[in-house]
Design a protein around this nucleic acid. Structure first.
Lengths: 207, 207
DNA sequence: GTTGCAAGTTGACGTTTCGTCATTTTTGTG
DNA sequence: CACAAAAATGACGAAACGTCAACTTGCAAC
């Protein structure tokens, strides 16, 4: 065949700048939200953090809210493969639970160290369950639980409720962990894993 | 003494309308948020739902955000005495946990039946942990847990983490429960109580 | 390379919402 | 009733919004 050049980068300049602009807006938005808080931030504040014009913002997002959702979505998107790896590498159900929580706590610690800032500051910690990637994370967790139940590795619990409970625990205990300094990921993961597997007894400080 | 009239109502008209106005704004805001969503709602939309003038709004709240926080705060304030009663009437620690969750699930079911609407609709379900009454609820829960631990009714767990875990579970499983129709409060409460007391085994469908 | 067109960017503009404040109304008191 | 303090009012300038006609850029056909 007469196919000549390699085609490793199928994206032209058009698409490239589109991705770059979108990303620039998200980065600027993250900084602005951290700086001013979600409410006080304006679309103009965000766009000022890029080299784009005000009108361009609306080619990418309908509103400040949509940018925020995209940020949350992004977080979930980055976390999902980590979660999947935890599942694939797990030696047992207990191991899966533990490594999933470790992964999540690790993730939020990293995520909250942006720009050398401590954690502090009222950041928009608000997490929606209804953004697409968020739902995907929920489904991933739920699927793992259902598989474990099907294989007899876990009791026959309501997988929907259990997935929700795990997510709720992860979020709240995760936030509590971040409030402590330094955040002890292993301790937090040990706590929540013990709680889920054995209840209060499992969560107790010493075995 | 020449004190003549009874004084059962120490509040004059001043204070009375102040309370009424504040309440009117909160009621209108709840309706507007439900109707338009938090983002789309404006301070003017809210004030239009009352018979007050626009300027008056700012005598009561600094911003839309503050109104929203006040709504959340209000919810927590109404829930707190219910939670306290659950504690005082509890026969045991297990009983306390169970009745607290029943009370919470009952509370949110009621709260989401406002105006005959189903649950649906993206309402600002966003719950902040940093509003004063919210913190009070957290502390109430934590205190109960610490007391139980001190009295030997519960293992020596990290009370901060456990309180956060309970709240996270209550929120997420509560939301999941609301998504089902009809919401089964007892089933949900049974699930979460079992989970916390005995872990997965306790949460399984049949004891 | 040049030409033409679709895709994307720009910033100025009319519109909407914001938050303030001088004025007016209401409430409590002597 | 008169007076002062407290609160409500709505008009106003400032700020942010979202749109759009004009302009620039990327790409493909020739």
């Amino acid at each position: 065949m007469s196919e000549t050049a390699v085609n490793v980068e199928p994206i032209g300049k058009r698409e490239k700048t589109k991705v770059a602009n979108r990303q620039a807006i998200l980065v600027a938005a993250r900084a602005v939200f951290a700086e001013l808080g979600y409410e006080a931030a304006t679309v103009r504040d965000i766009i000022r953090g890029t080299d784009l014009a005000s009108g361009t913002f609306y080619n990418y997002f309908k509103s400040k809210e949509e940018v925020f959702d995209a940020l949350a979505d992004d977080g979930a998107r980055r976390f999902r493969p980590i979660l999947r790896m935890a599942r694939e590498n797990a030696k047992s159900f207990d191991d899966y639970l533990h490594s999933a929580f470790v992964a999540y706590f690790h993730f939020i610690v990293q995520d909250n160290q942006v720009e050398g800032r401590p954690i502090d500051e009222r950041r928009p910690h608000i997490l929606r369950m209804d953004t697409p990637e968020m739902v995907a994370v929920y489904q991933e967790v739920r699927q793992s639980l259902e598989d474990a139940i099907a294989h007899g590795d876990a009791p026959r619990v309501d997988a929907d409720y259990l997935a929700c409970a795990c997510i709720g625990i992860a979020q709240e205990v995760g936030s509590a962990m971040l409030r402590r300094s330094p955040p002890d990921i292993d301790a937090a993961a040990h706590f929540v894993t013990g709680l889920i597997l054995k209840g209060l007894v499992g969560a107790a400080r010493e075995g």
